[in-house]
């Protein structure tokens, strides 16, 4: 019973958060002067201008528009793009999310795996040359702008020499460079996370116990250190997954990939209000859902939380 109540409370909180995010987005986007259709009304007769404003709801004051927008969101109606004639948020998500999701997951898979490996090596070689090299590399990877890195990869690794396409998104080959371009962000984060986590675990008493029992160093690392050191990694992973599927502007832009990240940034630039609203709410909902599921799973899995509860009773 206690668990159900906990879940419901979390769910309620999630809905409230989403409503706040939606409202904040609405007012922020509307606080900036101008709208996406002003440029098009330059030479329009007044009646047509009025029709156009009415078509996208710009004829109404802010508050009625807010009510209409929020009511629409509740019904899952995100409205129509004011820039792309006839486009809707579900259309865009259906066509662009799979692309961004694949790219993001590939980047994550490569990046996180590499990060974990490097993290382990770095922790085990703590304070030695290999460790410094890895940490320096991680710092470098995280500080080089993705735009620059993408362009460099494209310039030096795409084309006839390697057979990798310069731009485009068709077939596995075309995904290789974009995957690498975005992978190292995860690598550096997870390498550092893994390292500190392992060092943390190594210092624990049960490791000393294991070692003192005469278990071989390799077995200590695989059975005791790594298993426990993975806990923070597993906590972070769901969030990383949720974030990565929403795309990356620069990688998508450089390699001409029809993903969500590029579209999202562009819709903000174009002040395409309904699309910005719809996509923001969608992405926020996605992240919140992941947080929710993680919270629930965490509670189910982590015995300490359960024990605490039992103790309280």
């Amino acid at each position: 019973m206690g668990f159900l109540k906990y879940a419901l409370r979390k769910l309620g909180l999630m809905v409230v958060t989403l409503a706040i995010i939606a409202s904040a987005t609405f007012f922020l986007v509307n606080a900036v002067p101008g709208n996406p259709i002003a440029a098009r009304t330059l030479r329009m007769p007044e009646t047509v201008k009025a029709e156009l404003y009415a078509k996208y709801g710009f004829d109404k004051p802010l508050w009625p528009r807010y009510v209409i927008t929020m009511r629409g969101l509740l019904r899952g109606d995100f409205g129509m793009s004011a820039v792309y004639e006839g486009d809707t948020v579900p259309n865009i998500i259906a066509s662009k999310l799979p692309v961004s999701a694949r790219l993001g997951l590939q980047q994550m898979l490569v990046g996180v795996t590499l990060g974990i490996l490097l993290g382990v090596v770095s922790a085990l070689k703590n304070g030695r040359a290999a460790d410094f090299a890895i940490i320096a590399l991680a710092a470098f990877a995280v500080s080089i702008p993705q735009l620059v890195f993408s362009l460099l990869l494209q310039k030096f690794f795409a084309g006839a020499k390697t057979g990798l396409p310069i731009i485009g998104w068709s077939g596995f080959k075309s995904t290789i460079l974009p995957t690498i371009a975005g992978a190292f962000v995860y690598t550096s984060f997870y390498a550092r996370l893994m390292k500190s986590s392992i060092l943390d675990v190594i210092g624990q008493e049960y490791i000393m116990t294991a070692e003192s029992k005469g278990i071989s160093g390799f077995r200590v690392v695989t059975r005791h250190v790594l298993r426990n050191a993975f806990v923070p990694i597993i906590t972070y992973l769901p969030m990383t997954v949720a974030m990565c599927v929403t795309g990356s502007f620069f990688v998508e832009s450089v390699f001409t990939i029809p993903g969500l990240g590029y579209y999202y940034v562009k819709s903000v630039q174009q002040r395409d209000l309904s699309m910005v609203m719809g996509l923001t709410v969608f992405i926020a909902a996605l992240l919140l859902a992941v947080v929710f599921v993680t919270d629930i799973l965490y509670k189910l899995v982590d015995p300490r939380i359960r024990l605490e509860r039992a103790g309280k009773r």
Partner: peptide, 24 residues
């Protein structure tokens, strides 16, 4: 058709009744 609110609806106002149609 004014409801269509096409950006270039203004363009052919040389045509008889074009402006009137746009004005409704």
């Amino acid at each position: 058709t004014p409801e269509n609110a096409f950006t270039y609806s203004f363009f052919y106002q040389d045509i008889v009744n074009a402006a009137e149609a746009l004005a409704g």
